[in-house]
């Protein structure tokens, strides 16, 4: 994707049609890389699902954490890039996000973490889903590849730090803290799902 004359004309066209141009990446005023990096931190959907996966994976110790992390980061990066490149207008339905949170959180609350292999697959699934969403949400921003890179770095940092925190707790025999966290995440997901289905906002 290049910002050639076409992009300029598109911008000009936008200004003539005067719609509200809304870039969905939060702006840090530090350029597209940092806008992307801040994205997983300030987008609750992304942050919560990363936390949920990290908590669940941490119940399986370092190996589980590693697998989930690898799957998540790789898939998220590739999916964001792919979404940028192909421009497929995809967005994850809120109910799917809520369901994912409930599933991951519940599995964690009842201490039924899947095997590292399944964790890897879960990481990939979550990464693809949210990466596609991020890619299409952020396409309005300039410097798309830098934003993709930023998103990838942001996700990597957040996921690594939270997973490591969880693994640390698990090793210290504080797995119960992870289960409590899981139940809170599941509760958030459940409440959000209820909100979507029949809440006051419709």
């Amino acid at each position: 994707m290049k910002h050639g004359p076409r992009a300029l004309l598109a911008t000009a066209a936008c200004s003539s049609l005067a719609p509200t141009a809304s870039a969905h990446l939060v702006s840090t005023e530090l350029g597209p890389f940092y806008d992307g990096a801040a994205h997983p931190l300030v987008t609750p959907e992304d942050l919560l699902v990363i936390l949920a996966l990290a908590t669940l994976a941490a119940l399986r110790g370092a190996e589980g954490g590693r697998r989930a992390l690898v799957g998540l980061c790789a898939a998220w990066t590739v999916a964001t890039a792919a979404s940028f490149a192909w421009g497929a207008p995809l967005s994850a339905p809120p109910l799917l996000v809520a369901g994912l949170l409930v599933a991951l959180g519940l599995a964690c609350a009842v201490n039924r973490a899947p095997s590292p292999r399944v964790l890897l697959a879960l990481g990939i699934a979550v990464g693809v889903l949210h990466g596609l969403e991020n890619g299409s949400a952020a396409r309005a921003a300039d410097g798309v590849w830098l934003s993709t890179l930023g998103i990838a770095s942001g996700v990597f940092v957040v996921a690594t730090l939270t997973t490591a925190c969880g693994v640390h707790l698990e090793r210290r025999g504080a797995a119960i803290a992870l289960r409590v966290a899981g139940s809170w995440l599941a509760a958030i997901g459940l409440l959000f799902a209820g909100w979507q289905l029949a809440g006051p906002a419709g």
Binding site: A7, G31, V70, C73, T77, G143, W145, L146, A152, S153
Partner: peptide, 25 residues
């Protein structure tokens, strides 16, 4: 994919395109 390969990919991704200038002036 091993963690190592992913990390290599990530690191290369991290540094390669940073030299590019801002495109929308």
């Amino acid at each position: 994919m091993t963690p190592r390969n992913v990390l290599i990919t990530l690191l290369v991704l991290l540094f390669a395109p940073l030299a590019r200038a801002h495109e929308l002036r």
